[in-house]
Design a protein around this nucleic acid. Structure first.
Lengths: 330, 330
DNA sequence: TATAAATATGTAAGCGTTTACACTCCATTA
DNA sequence: TAATGGAGTGTAAACGCTTACATATTTATA
């Protein structure tokens, strides 16, 4: 069943059928109705490959997402997929599986699928190789990064001021008198480093140097909660103590909270990403919300703007917001 | 840059180039190397639309997933995507956004994309309309349902014996002397109803009738934890009590646990899906693991078998396993 | 060496769309 | 009445690949 079949059944030419298919105004109402009726009757579905070959696009967007099973990423992908569908695009998924993995082959994969644009969720390693991969991809189709930063030409970014968020949180804690603030983190992606930098800046501003920092890198690869729990125990066993804790992800906060609780240590704990995990804990953990849904909306807007030749800002930075729960009230 | 360009640069015909592209054995080593070299030099990427038009497939699988932001679904999609890519297929995502939503338009969407097969994550409403949609789709391409059941012809299912899991859990609780076992649930999908049925059967076996059941339907649409917390409070306020609780999802278990804890009620609580949520809680919640990754592996195997004309079982049922944590030990 | 068989290559048609361009009507307008 | 213009339609080429079939080349066999 192709356009020729429909054309002959409707007694018109393929051009007319194609025009009906594409809502061209250059068809008479009569022809339009007739063709439409036949198409409905026959259950005709245009061949997307032929259309793609002819138009060189099937209106699809590639989503590049490290570890889609990460709850934050899943939320992002979910939101993006809906927005794109609403705008007539479909979504081809490429999930790398780890944060550090080289993205270039996934970019190539998506480009080979002839996507109209690429949307990348989350920040990556930020190294030169990654930048080059993105720049190469961006030479072919628009590339937008959600909640991450890739400093490459023609790569658009929508991100959250995580550095600022941590910085003002540190300031707030210091103001309240907490002097030894610990910071537990995992990834050293752009986002990870920004947060870390916010922490350090905050301490530095108060005259607290490198030796006053309590930084702990948690290996969250397999089970973040267990890892954080164990590593927190280890650090406490060394006799180190701290009067407040900021965690780069809620999962880390949860694990640390468990360890602290076991020793009946009650200090302010603030997590990151405002996930359900923070709410599951007891006491519920306050968390910095990076507004992932807003970022997705912005990113999709950037993408559509670029695709449609409208001007779009290369970098959009929104601010985070602290969701206060039991573990810390401003 | 197309196959003709490559052909002329390599001094061969398009047929030869195409053969190299498709690893045909009918090319001399010499031609093969030459063509390959030129393709590499030129950075040639075959046009997937043209290939699709010619072969009537681009080796893509549609994933139909209600609410991909659900942590369990995200895990499934993540796993499936990797498995499929390993097998040379890419993944087109269609996420419905809610469990009840009519899936037929999403199926049509995927079919219009000319996917080679459809993989549906999770159970749906199970109603006649849904069945009809799936049957229609299954008439065109193989359809496999992961962790759900659609009783339609030619629809393959890989699922977990959730009814049996709840049933034996109830038996176990009764054996331990817990007489008034509550069951909190949310969705009434196939899976939801199976679990409910397991609960009822378990009680019935012990001679406990409908009036001994403590069933509560939680509205988890917006925030499952809050909903469960509030509704648990409400039911407790009415004076109703129970000596053990089974929840159809970890999120429900978490909310209920919070409410019970506030009243210093300590009873066995068992959740479902063995998500991180269960581990975040305190005490950590035991949970029935529905082995979603195994199911995905099985489902993808079914799919590949069917696609390659090998025989595949229409229904695969695996058993669940109870992950014991602090909230309940066997 | 002649011939058959196997291997390698090329030609051209076909996949199902879109769309530039050409054409036919028919209603205006001079 | 003839010329003009606009609306509707059709023809045919183009998109870039695969592959059946035909042909050329090499190798094996008698």
């Amino acid at each position: 069943m192709n356009i020729y079949d429909i054309a002959s059944k409707a007694g018109v030419s393929v051009a007319t059928v194609s025009r009906v298919l594409n809502n061209s105004p250059r068809v008479s109402q009569k022809s339009k109705e007739k063709v439409q009726r036949i198409m409905d009757e026959e259950g005709y579905v245009p061949n997307i490959f032929a259309r793609g070959l002819s138009l060189n696009s099937v209106k699809s967007i590639g989503i590049l997402c490290p570890v889609i099973s990460d709850i934050n990423h899943a939320a992002a992908v979910s939101h993006i997929e809906r927005l794109l569908r609403t705008n007539g695009f479909d979504t081809i998924l490429a999930s790398t599986g780890s944060y550090e993995e080289d993205k270039s082959k996934y970019l190539d994969f998506l480009l080979a699928k002839r996507v109209d644009a690429i949307l990348c969720v989350g920040s990556g390693s930020g190294d030169a190789k990654e930048r080059a991969s993105f720049e190469r991809a961006a030479g072919q189709v628009p590339v937008v990064v959600v909640n991450g930063m890739v400093k490459a030409k023609n790569v658009y970014c929508a991100l959250c001021d995580e550095e600022g968020a941590v910085l003002s949180l540190v300031e707030e804690l210091l103001r309240k008198g907490y002097r030894s603030i610990a910071y537990f983190y995992d990834t050293e992606t752009y986002s990870g480093l920004q947060k870390l930098s916010g922490y350090r800046k905050g301490l530095a501003q108060a005259g607290l140097g490198a030796d006053q920092r309590i930084e702990l890198k948690i290996d969250t690869e397999t089970n973040g909660i267990d890892a954080s729990f164990n590593q927190t125990n280890t650090i406490l066993d060394t006799g180190k103590s701290f009067s407040a804790l900021i965690a780069a992800d809620d999962i880390i906060a949860v694990g640390a909270q468990k360890a602290l609780k076991k020793r009946a240590i009650s200090i302010p704990i603030i997590g990151f990403n405002n996930s359900r995990f923070a709410q599951c804990a007891d006491p519920e953990i306050s968390s910095i919300d990076t507004m992932i849904e807003s970022l997705c909306t912005i990113a999709v807007q950037q993408l559509l703007d670029v695709l449609q030749g409208r001007p779009a800002p290369e970098r959009v930075l929104i601010s985070a917001s602290l969701v206060q729960r039991e573990s810390f009230i401003l």
